[in-house]
Amino acid sequence: MPLRQLQTAVQNAIIHNDVGPLHASHVLVLDTASAIGVYQQAYRTRLRDTLHSHYPMLAKHLGFAAFNQLADVYIGRHTPETTSLRDYGDRLAAACLSDLPSDQAETVAELASFEWKLAHAFDALEGSPVTVSQLSTIEPSRWADLRFTGVPSLLRHRATTPAVTLWRQLHQTDTDSHATTGALSAVRQASEHSPTDWVISRIGREVRFRSIPPDESAALDILLSGLSFAHLCEHLADTHHEATASTAATWLKTWVEAGWLETV
C-alpha cells in the first residue's frame, strides 16, 4: 500500500474508528482492532487530559463523568490541527452551549470562555508595557495623537452571567466533587446578574483579572481600538464634562500601572 494511502487508513482508524480499510488490506502484523485500539485509547485520553488541564474549574464544576462526556463529544467533533496541544479546546465554550442542559449552559459556557482566556494570558507574548515614567517624558504637544494598544496577554471579558464568581468559588474550594453548594447557588443567581466587564492580563508570570465599571470599560475600549488620546478626551467630554482631563489622566495612569498598555 503506498505510504500516503497507508497513513490515511491508519489515521482514519485511530480518529474515526474506521478500521475497515486497514483490516481489508491485511497491512498489519497484529490483529487490527486490538493494535489500533492502543492508539485510539491513547488519542482520546491525551485529548481529554488536555481539555482537563485547560479547563480545570469547568471540570471541577461539572464533575468527572459529565466533563468527560462533554470532552468526548468535543473530541469526536474536533481534531487537533496544530503542533501544540495548548491550542486544542478553543471551541469548548460553544460546545457547552450546544451540549449541556439549558438551565446551566449559559453560565457554564461563559465559565469555559473565561477559563480559555486565562490560559491564553498564561503564556502569551511578554510585550513591552509602557510605564508612568515613560509617559511623563512625552512632550505635551504629542499627547493628543498618542495611541496605545493592549499588551499581548490583555483580553476583555464581558460577563453576562456570574461565571467569574463561580470560577472564584471553585478555585477556592479543594474538593473535586460535583459542583459545590456555593457554585450551584451562583448559577441559580444567573438571571439576577448584571453584565460586568473584566480585564485579564499577565504581569510577569502571574495572570490577573479585575472588573472595571462600564464607563471606564468604554473608555478603555476606545484606546484599545486604536483611537488616539484626543478621541478618548472627546468621548469623556460628552460623559464627564468638566472632569474630562482629570478622568482621562486618572484612568490612563491606572491602566498603565496595571501593565495593560503599550504605546504604538
Binding site: L3, Q11, E81, T82
Partner: peptide
Amino acid sequence: GIRGINSHDLLPLPYHEEA
C-alpha cells in the same frame, strides 16, 4: 498526522525503501 491533523501520537512507519 496527515491532511492537516496532528494526532499528537508518535505513529510508526513501514520499514521499506519507499519510506
